[in-house]
Amino acid sequence: MRFMIFLTGYGFAVAGGVSFIMYFNFLAAGITWTDYLSFTISRPECYLFFLGWILIILGLKE
């Protein structure tokens, strides 16, 4: 069961991390770091990164 939680968390963390990297392209388009952070906070797929890390930690906890 813990292995499945770990794998699910890993998948969420990868999906969220890819979203963060994908949105880095907005910086090249000319938005500021403040605008980037406020945009990523408002996107639900970016929350997957943090949820994934929580699940990974729970999956590894004994």
Results as ranks from 00 to 15, higher is better:
1 M>W: 03
1 M>G: 10
1 M>K: 13
1 M>S: 13
2 R>A: 02
2 R>W: 06
2 R>M: 02
4 M>N: 09
5 I>L: 10
7 L>W: 05
8 T>N: 07
9 G>E: 00
9 G>K: 00
10 Y>F: 14
12 F>M: 15
14 V>I: 08
14 V>F: 09
14 V>C: 10
15 A>T: 09
16 G>V: 05
16 G>A: 02
18 V>C: 09
19 S>A: 14
19 S>V: 13
19 S>M: 14
19 S>Q: 06
19 S>I: 12
20 F>T: 05
21 I>C: 04
22 M>K: 15
22 M>Y: 09
22 M>W: 10
23 Y>C: 05
25 N>S: 14
26 F>P: 00
26 F>H: 11
27 L>N: 02
27 L>E: 02
27 L>K: 10
27 L>S: 02
28 A>R: 13
29 A>Y: 06
30 G>F: 13
30 G>N: 03
30 G>K: 07
31 I>W: 10
31 I>Y: 07
31 I>M: 10
31 I>S: 06
32 T>E: 01
32 T>N: 06
32 T>Y: 03
34 T>R: 10
35 D>Y: 05
35 D>A: 11
36 Y>T: 00
36 Y>W: 12
36 Y>R: 05
37 L>W: 14
37 L>P: 01
38 S>F: 06
39 F>V: 13
39 F>G: 11
39 F>M: 14
40 T>N: 09
41 I>T: 07
41 I>V: 07
41 I>E: 01
41 I>S: 05
44 P>A: 15
44 P>N: 15
44 P>L: 12
45 E>W: 08
45 E>L: 11
45 E>R: 10
45 E>N: 08
46 C>K: 02
46 C>Q: 05
49 F>C: 10
49 F>T: 03
49 F>P: 02
49 F>E: 04
50 F>V: 06
51 L>T: 04
52 G>H: 06
53 W>D: 09
53 W>E: 13
55 L>P: 00
56 I>R: 08
56 I>M: 13
59 G>H: 03
59 G>I: 01
59 G>L: 03
59 G>Y: 04
59 G>K: 06
60 L>P: 07
61 K>F: 07
61 K>P: 01
62 E>P: 14
62 E>W: 10
62 E>I: 00
62 E>N: 12
